[in-house]
Design a protein around this nucleic acid. Structure first.
Length: 905
DNA sequence: TGATATACTATTTTT
DNA sequence: TAGTATATCA
């Protein structure tokens, strides 16, 4: 809270602010802004919508706005509510505000993620959740103000909800469950309700409930239209689940927002406090807000109406997680008189890349529409397009290209690589610190060339361009030199591969491993989601609060203590019949000798250990770090992994050490547990220059000089499933994803696709993505050799010279767009529908193709070569290949050996 | 109870 | 195909 009590904050808010805000002495932080950014920063009063296209400096505008609020004395740190979606974004904002203001600013207590801020609020008012869950309103509130909807009389109130009247309510020290706990809990509920978990899996239910929570529907608020969900039992189970959570004094991620919204709706006095308190509200990535978040913001903003939302409807890619693009589209309706600022000046990508991305996204119908501009004169390189035979060939080709681009491969280049000179501003700083005088841009660049300290960065290039504009005679040469140097040369950190689905990463990992190309996968399982971390955390949780049943369940038999299903059931039963926690139930089992042999002995030891740990936590005898280590040792958990012979065991031990180290940043175990559930960051940034591999979703907000976008095939990208499930909306979201991908690239963007790919172990052929057709041809350079779709196998292995090693070469383009293969692609792609059912695509059994063969036939397959048919199964042939051995192959990928010369694919 | 065999399913995942 | 979850057996 940075030293402010609630009262003080209110007092501060009540006092009119001094007019020193208007004292317009020079504000250096405003200098670097373009007019639109400046407008967004300086329009402090009233609602503001900042539509910020990719790479237009929206974080800069947002942070500068906060700095401006503070520097002008318009608001104090604690009066500003600034919310982001990720911890990373929140951190970055804090840092940049600090940078703008100098070190003088004290922390901003209300800058954080939606969840972090709401947890803070919920801990203050937790007790308001639970009492009278359903008594208050019998109307369903429509978030979008079409008027309240009366509850239909035929819908009975779910049992669980109204039963919560017996004084049960949330307590301020509630635990936050993650997805894993959530599923386990639901599984128990399903088992208790005798629901067949096979037909109605807990995962599905959790998805449904999450969806409802995202829409801000409490169990008694779920519309009738949803009553058939989950075999008609969805709503009841939801109510039961909420009740169970209350009993456990726990909330899940969805609850964090939902509960706070509920409190605001039912307790106007509480809401009013915060409306007064938060005089200025700022929201990042507004296009990603769901209904709960939207309601929360709208309620809070009704106070001072100083809300500034930043977003880009074209980058809305989380619709499947409940995000409502509609929120950004209707901002002006929600906040009449809203000031709309468009940031359209792009500082990231070259004109060619920008044009390609703009051309693609123009195919979307539902959007506000923005035109990204750049002042960059040099067009840069066209978006490169490459087709390959299969996924492996694609990975191979990308690997080769990266090696070509890798500046570090040449020693000479490495010597010239000097991040210190990344831009002119940094150089000025460096000189100031070193006591050297200032330097002109011109001299800076000249010197950089003379000393060989040139960093091939867009910023350097832009400096040279600036000199060109000023008609500086020497700049012409410099421009040439910079460009020569820059062609194809990057550090590995500057290269990224962005895939649609994580399984695509594998091909690249395999390939890069075998050629020794350093890479790093971004995303993956997060640190706090790893099994060993969660186990360890469960031990800590139990030590801190012995009644944490979920934690107990998790660790009773981890490591193995001979306490299987039966023993655990006995414990459960004992606990329930005595109305006590599982730990107490276990204690009773031990005392009453309700268990046999090994289990009894082990359980007694466990119960005793937990008692001891709890006592030590309370006594604060040891430091919490020592205590944590002790718990892990005494429980046998460390030993468990030490004895484990699987290859990942050492890594897991390493992670445990990491966890203990992380504890050092907190005062005690409780504090650690409270914060950790919201910080799911993967902070283990190993050093070293590496290529990044990640999903397109993970890439949002990032930028790289060179970007590879593989797997642009219809069905994979756009994903068939998205199109099947969400039709045109789904397709448009996929297109936005493509747009996000392209706009990550600063200088070189390479799109590729494969004609064949193995999907679930089956070879499948695919069409190039429809998004490829939508790229404006003038901004695309096709590297795909004409042979790929005419000459068949081997075309992909064409020598580099034929693959267009010169990025400026336009000659290939016309050739390929006109080649028979390309035309055939176009013709075939014309048959595609928006939401062709998956079955039609995948389950076609081409019996004609099978019947063309009999056992003993000599055949040819593009990948495996020549072989002999050994048998026929359905639409598949069993073939003994000369080189590749026995394989099962779909018949239409095979031709008889004598036709092998004329293969269409 | 614990280990092995079989069956099943399979995007994207900010917190 | 491969990874996981459940079923079965020792």
């Amino acid at each position: 809270m940075s030293g402010f009590t609630e009262d003080e904050a209110f007092e501060a808010a009540a006092v009119p602010l001094s007019q020193r805000a208007m004292a317009q002495h020079h504000m250096p932080y405003l200098d670097g802004l373009n007019p639109a950014q400046r407008e967004a920063v300086e329009t402090l009063q009233g609602p503001v919508l900042m539509l910020a296209g990719a790479g237009t400096g929206k974080t800069k505008a947002l942070t500068t706005r906060i700095a401006h609020l503070l520097a002008t004395g318009t608001a104090r740190p604690h009066e500003i509510l600034a919310v982001t979606f990720t911890n990373k974004a929140a951190r970055e904002m804090k840092q940049r505000i600090g940078g703008l203001m100098g070190e003088a600013v004290e922390g901003m207590p209300w800058l954080g993620t939606f969840h972090a801020v709401c947890v803070k609020l919920l801990r203050r008012h937790a007790e308001l959740i639970g009492e009278n869950v359903s008594a208050l309103d019998q109307i369903i509130e429509d978030p979008y103000d079409k008027g309240p909807v009366p509850r239909p009389p035929n819908q009975s109130l779910p049992k669980g909800a109204s039963a919560a009247n017996n004084g049960l309510h949330l307590k301020s020290n509630f635990t936050i469950l993650d997805t894993d706990d959530q599923i386990r809990l639901l599984k128990q509920l399903l088992a208790a309700s005798n629901i067949d978990e096979k037909r109605w899996p807990a995962r599905m239910l959790s998805g449904i409930i999450d969806g409802w929570k995202n829409k801000a529907w409490t169990p008694d608020n779920v519309p009738v239209a949803e009553s058939s969900a989950f075999d008609g039992k969805g709503v009841d189970l939801y109510a039961a689940y909420q009740r169970r959570l209350l009993e456990l004094n726990a909330v899940d991620f969805g609850d964090i927002l939902l509960h706070v919204v509920t409190i605001f709706q039912k307790h106007p006095d509480v809401l009013e406090q915060y409306q007064r308190w938060f005089r200025y509200i700022l929201v990042d990535e507004y296009q990603d807000t769901n209904v709960s978040q939207y309601l929360w913001l709208r309620l809070l903003a009704q106070g001072h109406k100083n809300i500034c939302c930043v977003g880009d409807d074209d980058q809305s890619i989380y619709g499947w997680r409940g995000a409502e693009v509609g929120n950004i589209l209707r901002f002006e309706k929600d906040f009449p008189g809203a000031h709309v600022v468009r940031l359209e000046e792009n500082y990231r990508s070259t004109p060619h890349i920008l044009a390609a991305a703009s051309g693609l996204i123009a195919n979307n119908k539902n959007r506000l529409g923005k035109t990204l501009k750049t002042s960059q004169k040099d067009q840069g390189y066209r978006v490169r397009l490459m087709g390959e035979w299969d996924g492996d060939a694609e990975a191979r080709w990308v690997g080769e290209k990266i090696e070509d681009h890798w500046a570090g491969r040449s020693e000479e280049a490495k010597n010239r690589f000097n991040p210190r000179l990344k831009n002119f501003g940094q150089e000025l700083d460096r000189r100031a610190k070193a006591g050297l005088g200032p330097i002109s841009e011109h001299d800076y660049i000249k010197q950089a060339f003379e000393t060989g300290e040139v960093y091939r960065n867009l910023k350097t290039l832009n400096l040279v361009r600036a000199l060109l504009k000023k008609n500086d005679p020497s700049s012409e040469n410099m421009l040439g030199a910079v460009k020569d140097y820059r062609v194809n040369k990057f550090g590995l950190d500057e290269i990224a591969i962005l895939v649609r689905a994580s399984h695509q990463m594998r091909a690249f990992e395999d390939r890069f491993l075998s050629i020794g190309l350093p890479y790093r996968v971004i995303g993956g399982p997060r640190f706090y989601e790893r099994m060993e971390i969660r186990d360890a955390m469960a031990y800590f949780r139990l030590a801190v609060s012995p009644t944490d049943d979920l934690a107990f369940e998790r660790i009773v038999n981890t490591p193995k203590r001979g306490l299987g299903d039966k023993a655990q059931q006995t414990i459960q039963r004992t606990a329930r019949s005595n109305g006590v926690s599982l730990l107490e139930g276990a204690r009773l089992c031990c005392q009453g000798k309700l268990l046999g042999g090994k289990g009894l002995k082990e359980l007694t030891i466990l119960v005793d250990s937990v008692d001891r740990w709890t006592a030590q936590v309370r006594a604060e005898a040891d430091t919490h770090v020592e205590l944590a280590e002790m718990i892990l040792d005494e429980s046998g958990y460390t030993t468990f992994w030490q004895n484990d012979k699987t290859p990942e065991a050492p890594g897991r031990l390493e992670n445990l050490k990491e966890l203990v180290k992380a504890l050092e940043n907190f005062d005690n175990l409780q504090g650690f547990l409270e914060h950790v559930s919201l910080i799911m960051d993967n902070e283990t940034e190993e050093a070293g220059e590496k290529v990044s591999i990640m999903t397109l979703h993970a890439a949002k907000g990032l930028e790289f000089p060179a970007v590879f976008l593989p797997g642009w095939e219809d069905g994979l990208f756009p994903s068939q499933r998205s199109m099947d499930e969400s039709g045109l909306q789904g397709l448009e979201e996929e297109r936005r994803l493509a747009y996000v991908g392209i706009t990550r690239a600063e200088e070189i963007c390479t799109i590729s696709f494969a004609a064949n790919r193995r999907v679930y172990g089956q070879w499948q052929s695919a069409m190039p993505s429809r998004f490829i057709d939508e790229l404006p041809p003038d901004h695309v350079e096709v590297l795909t050799p004409p042979g790929l779709y005419g000459g068949g196998y081997g075309a992909a292995a064409a020598p580099a010279s034929a693959v267009g090693s010169d990025l400026h070469d336009k000659a290939h383009k016309a050739d390929v767009y006109n080649s028979p293969g390309w035309k055939r692609l176009q013709a075939r792609s014309g048959q595609r529908g928006v939401s062709q059912p998956a079955e039609a695509r995948n389950m076609t059994i081409d019996l004609d193709a099978v019947s063309a063969f009999t056992e003993g036939d000599r055949v040819f397959h593009q990948k495996f070569g020549y072989g002999e048919v050994m048998g026929i199964e359905g639409d598949k042939l069993e073939i003994e290949f000369d080189k590749a051995g026995a394989k099962h192959v779909v018949a239409r990928f095979v031709v008889s050996a004598d036709q092998a010369d004329d293969v269409p694919f």
